[in-house]
Design a protein around this nucleic acid. Structure first.
Lengths: 345, 345
DNA sequence: ATTAGTCAATGAACCGGTTCCAAATTATCT
DNA sequence: AGATAATTTGGAACCGGTTCATTGACTAAT
């Protein structure tokens, strides 16, 4: 924590015996500087320990070289993976990342959007709690910087990166139906936003295709924390006519579900079939290993970052783009098997 | 993405019929403004949709209200937990968080430190790859903003927040020794930095106390990825005279270790005792549940954030502080048991 | 030799806030 | 009422870069 006050571009100019404009040109690699002037400036910078002040530099021109990311909860490993991959791309391109959690709250989302604008952030990568909300749509539309939405689809005038969760839900549901399950419990997040909404759609679509009636009671939504996952799973398991399998379609809600299964003295895969909606170490290495839907999270973060950088670079208005990544079902050994009379094998 | 050019403080002043200094005073809640002037300014701000420009505001005074966090790899859940808790504290206090991963590379750490300084970040919370490195120490000492180190102890002139990993290692080792294990394999990170260094120290200390000779071959260090964890565990398990238990003392390296155990056709807890150095869903919910060391990660992030904010607020030089959080061993069912002739029960 | 053209360098103006001194206004005290 | 003190207000200067019109030097073309 030294307290020397820093040298300015004028100090450098004086030391090098050139005008301050020349120093600026050297700093920005402008071509029209003679080698000797360039060298003199370089030496003066070295001698004075000069460091460019990014705040001052950003005042005149619009470029702050900062981008922001506002995500629901970034200690959810899946989200952390997006952000990590994105940050790497941003840093490579010379951008610094601002990060905030929104806790999926609309007010936080709006206030962050405002705060980012005040800081002249050049682009934003974010999730949105409610895709149908007018104020949020308005907030995004009136933002002065480009925005890329993560795992959202409705706002079609904004760039989006998403995984194909409806197809994933279809795969998971088909898998369970094929094993004979007819009552499949679903643990799912907030249907106001794409991932959960489309997972529910996929679940229904697949039931319809196989001519199986959906039992509404089995769809437990608004599960956004493991405490709620525990409660909802317990509810599902405690009634009579309990499901023979569970599709844990909310991201990172497997722990709460497994806790509830354990608390009910049941063994996953034997007493109840289970498919996780997002892959994790726990799914891979549990006993039994748990079948899970998987997509390339790094790819998702990288795509988002690249789209955003591209938008920032050429600001001509172009139609919004949408990248949809494939989801694959990794079959492990947890889906169980149910025959017509509902008894597990 | 609207393209209206924004109103400035001068526009507001003109509209409200006051001087620009008065507008600034209203914005900053200075007391000496008459209620009517304040109201006129408020109305003008409303009418023009004025938004304060944080970049411009930070130019004259030093306050950018930004803090930065540079952490090894923030998709490691434990680290993400620190950052999330810290971010909440920072946001509450009006600070925006800049985030970057260092990949534990010295060059990245140094260059980030420089970049943060250029952006006039007011404080930094970070990990450091090598506590003994002179350049890094120099970089920190000469930084113009306060720094809080996460899980580091050697740089005693800097604020630090850490968990008591030596005591944790002692608990884990004692537990395994008490169960009869005499050859305890250790999977541990980079001994150049505190957590791993002190875990190794704890491991040795406990062995000494119990009069058990440490077998150097069993300490596998520099494990910073699950691929390496897999390899090192495989090495440990394949030699003859294999350990009867493993202490997975590197954070988040349990998955790789379990993969190796599984690949060796062994069952944790039955064929080999295991204690994890950091708790996780996988440890809690695996079969068998795996005993693990645990500490309050949220508390750690919060402490770091609070220390940093305090430093920023009163800049008088005070001696560096160090918060050391307790580590507890959560005993589950994975430690196994070994008797004198090395056969597992 | 003169003119046109190219390239470097200069430094004032600018970005949009904050700060602070001096001036104006209002309140308080004899 | 007049003097003095306290409070508001005005606006120039400032923060430290970037930009750009202008000048100066040098080269190529006529």
């Amino acid at each position: 924590m030294a307290v020397i006050k820093k040298a300015t571009i004028r100090d450098v100019a004086a030391k090098a015996g050139v005008a301050l404009g020349t120093v600026s040109r050297v700093l920005n690699d402008h071509p029209s500087v003679t080698p000797q002037a360039r060298r003199a400036v370089r030496e003066a910078i070295e001698a004075l320990g000069y460091e460019r002040d990014a705040v001052a530099g950003s005042l005149r021109n619009a470029r702050t070289r900062m981008v922001a990311c506002a995500i629901r909860d970034f200690d959810i490993p899946a989200f952390a993976s997006y952000v990590k991959a994105a940050e790497a791309v941003f840093r490579e391109a010379g951008y610094t990342l601002l990060l905030a959690s929104t806790s999926n709250e609309k007010d936080v989302e709006l206030s962050l959007l405002r705060s980012f604008a005040q800081r002249r952030v050049e682009g934003v990568m974010m999730t949105m709690s409610d895709e149908a909300d007018v104020e949020l749509a308005q907030g995004i539309a009136s933002a002065s910087m480009p925005i890329v939405l993560i795992d959202r689809e409705m706002m079609t005038n904004v760039d989006r990166v998403m995984a194909d969760h409806e197809d994933g839900a279809d795969q998971a549901t088909s898998h369970l139906l094929a094993l004979g399950h007819r009552r499949i419990g679903m643990i799912v997040g907030d249907p106001a936003a794409y991932p959960s909404r489309s997972r529910i759609a996929g679940y229904r679509r697949t039931h319809d295709r196989h001519g199986v009636q959906v039992e509404e009671r089995l769809i437990r939504n608004h599960v956004l924390s493991n405490e709620v996952a525990f409660r909802e799973t317990t509810t599902l398991l405690s009634g009579d006519n309990r499901p023979t399998a569970l599709f844990v379609a909310a991201v990172d809600m497997l722990p709460g579900t497994l806790r509830a299964i354990r608390a009910a003295q049941m063994v996953p895969g034997r007493d109840i079939g289970i498919v996780a909606g997002s892959d994790s170490d726990l799914a891979e290495l549990g006993s039994p290993p748990i079948s899970a839907l998987s997509w390339d999270r790094g790819e998702m973060g990288r795509h988002a970052a690249e789209m955003l950088i591209e938008r920032i670079r050429d600001k001509k208005p172009r139609p919004a783009r949408c990248v949809r990544l494939p989801v694959a079902l990794i079959v492990r050994d947890s889906a169980g098997r149910s025959n017509a009379d509902q008894a597990l094998k």
